Simulated scan of single mutants.
Amino acid sequence: MFCRGLLNFRSGSFGGWGMYLMIGFCLLMFLTLIFFAFKLIKAHSHSKSSESSDSALNILNERYARGEISDEEYTKRKIILSTKN
């Protein structure tokens, strides 16, 4: 009975292919949601990492301005922080 309904292409909407089209559409929507979820997570993690490196650079600038570190140390650490971005 079940196979007979699948092989009868004249019944139902879309000539019997309605079930397959609906499964394909649902699968497409599911994959689209997963894609956008990953893009959102990636964008959120990237913004957090750039914020932390910016704050590290701000701390380095403040320490240099207060005279806590030398010119050589400031330059060396600034290069290190800029390469991590």
Rank of each mutant, 00 (worst) to 15 (best):
M1E: 04
M1L: 06
F2S: 01
F2T: 03
C3H: 02
R4V: 07
R4N: 14
R4L: 08
G5L: 07
G5Q: 08
G5T: 03
L6G: 07
L6F: 05
L7I: 04
L7Y: 00
F9K: 15
F9E: 15
F9V: 12
R10H: 04
R10K: 08
R10W: 02
R10N: 07
S11D: 13
G12Y: 01
G12D: 05
S13A: 13
F14K: 06
F14D: 10
F14E: 09
F14V: 00
F14T: 00
G15N: 10
G15E: 10
W17K: 07
G18K: 08
M19F: 10
M19V: 12
M19S: 04
M19D: 06
M22H: 08
I23C: 10
F25C: 03
F25N: 00
F25D: 00
F25I: 04
L28F: 15
L28Y: 15
M29G: 05
M29E: 03
M29T: 03
M29W: 12
F30C: 07
F30G: 03
F30R: 02
L31Q: 05
T32Q: 13
I34V: 15
I34K: 06
F35G: 06
F35S: 09
A37S: 05
A37G: 01
A37L: 02
F38P: 01
F38C: 11
K39A: 10
L40F: 11
L40T: 10
I41S: 11
I41P: 01
K42A: 13
K42S: 11
A43P: 00
A43R: 11
H44S: 15
H44T: 13
S45W: 11
H46L: 13
H46T: 12
K48N: 12
S49A: 15
S49N: 09
S49D: 09
S49C: 06
S49W: 01
S49Y: 06
S49Q: 13
S50K: 11
E51C: 05
S53L: 12
S55H: 14
N58P: 00
N58Y: 11
N58H: 11
N58L: 13
I59G: 02
N61G: 01
N61Y: 09
E62V: 14
E62S: 14
R63E: 12
A65Q: 15
R66A: 12
R66I: 13
G67E: 12
E68L: 10
E68Y: 03
I69G: 02
S70A: 11
D71Q: 14
E72I: 04
E72R: 08
E73K: 12
E73C: 08
E73N: 09
Y74W: 07
Y74M: 05
Y74N: 01
T75D: 10
T75Y: 03
T75R: 10
K76Y: 05
K76L: 08
R77P: 00
K78R: 15
I79H: 09
I79D: 07
I80C: 02
L81M: 04
S82M: 14
K84A: 07
N85W: 08
